[in-house]
Design a protein around this nucleic acid. Structure first.
Length: 363
DNA sequence: AAACCGGGGAG
DNA sequence: CTCCCAGGTTT
């Protein structure tokens, strides 16, 4: 732990640094709880640069929590398309409805009520209330975990629950009595822009003189590494099945269900394949699968090169097969299925690979 | 405690 | 390629 003199230095130097160096970001313009909430949800596991334009579009369409609550979930997901972790969008929409129904359309301002909303944990509740209302609440997230681990010279893995407890207590102990929101943002900004994982810039750090990791040159050792993820290869085929109806070509798409990835988003029918077989053999096997699952019969031919895509622990290689001369009638499906023209496909929220298929082969 | 949930950017 | 990102929820 830092002594009280070092904490005073930390508060003063950090706030001064933030006043001079903070970035111009859209959610810093008008700090209402709703606007900070949207930014914090979007920023979960997502870099600032990626979020900025999504944030602008989202706030333009949903300026207040009431408009968000009144929207269809599909429209919320459409604005989220490409951001990933789509549960965030579904939970935020559900939370907006809760705010309208249980808090009279006013975003709650006490910690426990905020924490009770879906998709909001201790970090997000503290961030929203400290940044928008200057409540004296601590935060702990990716940037500050790294920053605190270095500031405390913590050599063991900061992600263990025992160390998390220590770091939360540290976060609470350094809060200033004024400007807690700016202070929290300053901590994250410093972690993100200066106290970086591999390319640390200690020369530009306003608190290097109180940092044992800088003094001892241990930046490469602290924070300790977690265990690395190993990807498993997954081979899949997407089926581009189309037929003419009403004078235009329509493609078969389906919405992903609650038990699978991309819940609420649309995608082309996808099946796992055996990549060791020839394209023709795979096409035959897919033809049977298609007939079995949908009742449709079609000749399938591979188009283009496989698309690669990493999700969580899988590296997916997605081959696309185009169908010709469709016969049969579409079965009633457990999951919702539609024949969509190109304009409809553009308006539907789709998985990223689904969207890429539309742009590459149907666009 | 570990798995799950996505996608993009940086190096 | 690998690592990481203004995490939360479920198992």
């Amino acid at each position: 732990m830092l002594d009280s003199k070092s904490k005073t230095t930390l508060r003063r130097n950090l706030l001064r640094w933030f006043d001079a160096n903070q970035r111009d970001l859209p959610w810093r313009e008008n700090r209402t709880p709703y606007r900070i909430w949207v930014s914090e949800i979007m920023l979960q596991q997502t870099q600032v640069a990626t979020v900025v334009n999504y944030y602008r579009r989202f706030l333009e369409r949903f300026p207040t929590v009431k408009e968000l609550a009144a929207a269809e979930q599909s429209e919320v997901l459409k604005l989220w398309e490409g951001l990933g972790y789509y549960r965030r969008a579904r939970q935020m929409h559900a939370a907006a409805i809760e705010v309208v129904e249980q808090h009279d359309g006013q975003f709650p301002t006490d910690f426990d009520s905020v924490l009770a909303l879906p998709g909001i944990g201790r970090y997000t509740a503290g961030a929203i209330l400290s940044i928008s209302l200057d409540q004296k609440l601590p935060i702990l997230e990716g940037n500050t975990i790294r920053l605190y681990a270095r500031l405390l010279g913590m050599k063991s893995d900061p992600r263990t629950s025992a160390n998390q407890k220590i770091l939360w207590e540290f976060a609470e102990s350094i809060l200033p009595s004024q400007r807690a929101g700016d202070f929290n943002q300053a901590l994250m900004e410093l972690g993100s822009e200066v106290c970086k994982p591999k390319t640390w810039q200690c020369a530009a750090c306003p608190i290097q003189n109180i940092c044992p990791t800088f003094v001892k040159g241990l930046q490469a050792e602290i924070p300790a590494k977690g265990r690395k993820i190993t990807y498993e290869d997954l081979y899949e085929a997407a089926l581009l099945v189309s037929r003419r109806r009403g004078g235009q070509q329509r493609w078969l798409v389906r919405v992903c269900g609650p038990e699978e990835r991309w819940t609420g988003l649309w995608d082309f029918p996808r099946y796992q394949i055996d990549h060791r077989q020839s394209a023709a053999t795979i096409a035959d096997s897919l033809q049977e699968t298609l007939a079995d699952r949908t009742g449709l019969k079609a000749e399938l031919t591979v188009v283009g090169k496989p698309m690669r895509h990493a999700v969580t622990k899988y590296r997916i290689r997605l081959s696309c097969f185009e169908a010709s001369s469709i016969k049969g009638r579409l079965k009633k499906q457990a999951t919702e299925t539609r024949w969509c023209a190109i304009e409809e496909l553009r308006q539907l929220p789709m998985s990223v690979t689904g969207r890429k298929i539309v742009n590459r082969f149907l666009g």
